[in-house]
Design a protein around this nucleic acid. Structure first.
Lengths: 217, 217
DNA sequence: AGGCGTTTGTGGACGCTGTCCACTCTAGCC
DNA sequence: GGCTAGAGTGGACAGCGTCCACAAACGCCT
């Protein structure tokens, strides 16, 4: 990432979008290690090997850079969730597979928060409004939403299709479930439960998923 | 709060712990308006009417001041929850009252997050470890714990006493419940659900409490 | 080919922050 | 009634985000 001192004459020497992309990559690196507060503009430019003000050619201010890093962090979470879901064998109407997919979603979410706390915190630390989320009910064509909520919705819809989840329980359940998983991630991540041991943490996660399953049944 | 320019000779003119208490009060004011990041040491000293370095006679650094403000924010949340619980009529073994108390706890928590977002964020933004929480199982003598988790535990224990909640469901349920409530508070507070409308938000809260009730039943 | 405007990066500066050091004055103890 | 510890002051430093004026490279147009 860091390629300082190219020792060329000033002016533009890099390919067209390189500085912008580099700043985001550097920001991602910083965020990974220290969360959103660690995304400091000057340090990012330093990693890219450019003077601080160069960043202002690509971002209005630090918040805009941070927003880009947040979006990238969220995308990373979404990608990992999608990968985990895709890895579950069985088709849409297979009841067992549908349930396993839901579990994979929750587990991956919690694992991401545990293994990449900086990115997780960053993904949800949007400086301004950002509109990750379809306001409350997506249009009926809930195409491909790779965000956590979108993927959770798809998994729940599959559960209904597969006959595991009753149709009248379905509407809106994504929010209690998301809240539960997110809350545990936050409490055990940066919150007061942050220094419970590993196996204790695993027990809490299991407890939560069981509780959710009970609420669905 | 702000009493600048007392225009006395320098040296100590205030009662003994006044500056320290004033700094915490000023920090609380700042946190209320802007969350933990708004607790800036120099601004707090300015509000108290003292030079920035004076703060270092009472706190090792900014993080220690912030920690004190966090503790105070958490205490405020705890007080409001306790007040709401105390206001519910009926004794410990009254089933209906016990259930109402649990609802009051959740509702107050969510309301606090909604009406005092700065304090709420601050309460959970501890810079270092802080040990609000009894690691996982309190000693059998779970005396008076005014923290959110402690009060939630008491309410759940009451629910068992009153015969509403089965004894084998009880162990550990506080964590899924806390997670759910906290998660919704965070998601609708600073998270991606932050700009849903008021009635939408109310619906989400209701949905969550229903889900929790279902998980308990 | 050559000129020119737009883009992109530079250099220097400002105000703000947290923090350190040396100093002073006050209050309370012997 | 002096002395010592505590509490507040003043000045300074580095690091941060941000603004301004300037210079160089690109690429388009004639």
């Amino acid at each position: 990432m860091a390629e300082a001192a190219e020792s060329e004459s000033p002016g533009r020497r890099r390919p067209r979008g390189a500085v912008r992309a580099g700043l985001i990559a550097a920001g991602l690196e910083l965020a990974r290690a220290g969360g959103p507060d660690a995304v400091v503009l000057r340090e990012a430019t330093r990693l890219v090997g450019v003077v601080p003000n160069a960043a202002y050619r690509h971002f209005a201010d630090r918040d805009e850079l941070l927003a880009a890093v947040c979006t990238a962090s969220m995308a990373e979470l979404g990608d990992r969730m999608a990968a985990a879901v895709a890895q579950v064998p069985g088709d849409r109407v297979d009841p067992e597979a549908a349930f396993t997919r839901l579990g994979a979603i929750g587990t991956t979410y919690l694992r991401f928060a545990r293994e990449e706390p900086g990115w997780f915190a960053t993904a949800y630390a949007v400086p301004q409004q950002h509109a990750y989320i379809t306001p409350t009910e997506a249009g009926p064509d809930a195409e491909e939403d790779r965000g956590p909520l979108g993927q959770l919705r798809m998994a729940l819809d599959n559960l209904v299709e597969a006959g595991v989840l009753s149709a009248e329980t379905r509407p809106g359940v994504e929010f209690p479930i998301w809240s539960g998983v997110h809350g545990l991630a936050v409490l055990t991540g940066q919150g007061p439960l942050r220094d419970v041991g590993d196996e204790e943490r695993a027990r809490l996660e299991e407890l939560l998923l069981l509780f959710i399953a009970k609420g669905l049944g």
